[in-house]
Design a binder for these strands. Sequence first.
DNA 1: GCGATCAGCGGCACG
DNA 2: CGTGCCGTTGATCGC
Lengths: 266, 266
Amino acid sequence: MVPLGEAAKAIQTGMARRELVLVVGRCKVSYEGRAASKLSEGDRLLIIKHDGTFLVHQSAKMSAINYQGPGAFVSCELALDPNDRKKREPVAIVLSAKRKLANGAVEQIVVRFTEILYAGAYGLKDDSHLKLFGTEKELADLLMSDLHLIEPGMVPLKQESDVRKGTIDILARDAAGNTVVIEVKRRIAGLEAVTQLERYVKELSQRRGSKIRGILCAPDVTASALKMLEESGGLEFAKLDYEIANPSAKIRGLQKKQKIITEYFG
Amino acid sequence: MVPLGEAAKAIQTGMARRELVLVVGRCKVSYEGRAASKLSEGDRLLIIKHDGTFLVHQSAKMSAINYQGPGAFVSCELALDPNDRKKREPVAIVLSAKRKLANGAVEQIVVRFTEILYAGAYGLKDDSHLKLFGTEKELADLLMSDLHLIEPGMVPLKQESDVRKGTIDILARDAAGNTVVIEVKRRIAGLEAVTQLERYVKELSQRRGSKIRGILCAPDVTASALKMLEESGGLEFAKLDYEIANPSAKIRGLQKKQKIITEYFG
DNA sequence: GCGATCAGCGGCACG
DNA sequence: CGTGCCGTTGATCGC
């Protein structure tokens, strides 16, 4: 247990130096802004970063239970007992993070600590940026030169093509000269991947007169998404098999799912 | 600067007691699993929770730069200098979190600390659950009894109605007896809100023979989403005006956007 | 700045 | 368990 006055000093000093501030202790949290929330007493970890990031973590789960993003204005003050002001004995440390939203409204989170288990601050030196492999973008990059695996004669036209209703991952042309819209997903594709593809194909079909093909390219597809593809009048699915060989990703295979032969005779 | 041996002891003791473990120091991070990543040397904060949650935070931004969710197996060991094993002088603390994915594959994150600024562990007592107000669900609850604000005679049928292609927020019937699908959004609705609504309306239209109305209900809608609504053949937009009066949300108004009169004469 | 989309999304609820 | 979808989503990138 750290005396409140001492903890407050550590916190304020750390904030003034724009260090990483850590506080562990018993607190209540309230938030009002885009939504509103209340969290009653309990032990938590508070993290304050130099950019205004303000995170309250409980003892389980990955996500912060309350937070404020970069750019928040953080304040820290001691609360005195209102019934006994002469003693000047602090009863709590009140920390708050306030932030202006895009629409001008304000949101604020207030944390009131009544017991402190730990308070410290550290200046972190870190210039490194994460190098991440296996993103959708990286897969699309690789696919650009592997479209022939989907179908002989398929050639890339453009990557990240902006249309009015979004951004087409890959625009291509097949052997017959048809324009092909390819939507890439790095994981199992669901309904919304299909609606996305549908949207792009529809927009392009309307803009040009000709028929546009659409191919969803993902490691797998949910049953209902596949059904929706089929019902959508000709949208196709290509199974994407990739491997993440740190530090890079590699496409192992890519093949269009063919209708089972029995379907043709069914 | 904390000696590595001492820090390792604090970390291991905290882990054994299933406490919240905090480590601040200079480290490298690598990850391989659903994706892969490398993060070169820098000062960071590592958080280990009793449920296996494992978070590496940099000095800025809200999100952890590397992480492992609840259920991960965490280990901590001292690394000795391979060229000088007799001295048994540790050169690093290596922490790792390993986790099995749903498909059976394994993913792992490894953090190698070479300098420790701080290492500590705390048992947190916390039984409280966040009470959150102003969620979409709460708005939908309120809307169920306020549908007449959209249109006289509109009555609710069912909330959270599962169909094959997703979940319809609100199913209602208008004065003329038409079925109405209402999609609720707590913030500005974009293209994907429209595609969602479109999907539900289409499915219901096909299943029943009759025409189904669709209304997107949100505080606002982007220009392109509104355009898509109009092009989608009769989908409508109702402006939802709500207030979050902690601890609750309240609907202030709800009105269907009428086409500007000049449009009829344009 | 708005807008659309991805994310190792996480988390939840329901089948 | 998968599947869908919300989230105070956050973060990025293009207009």
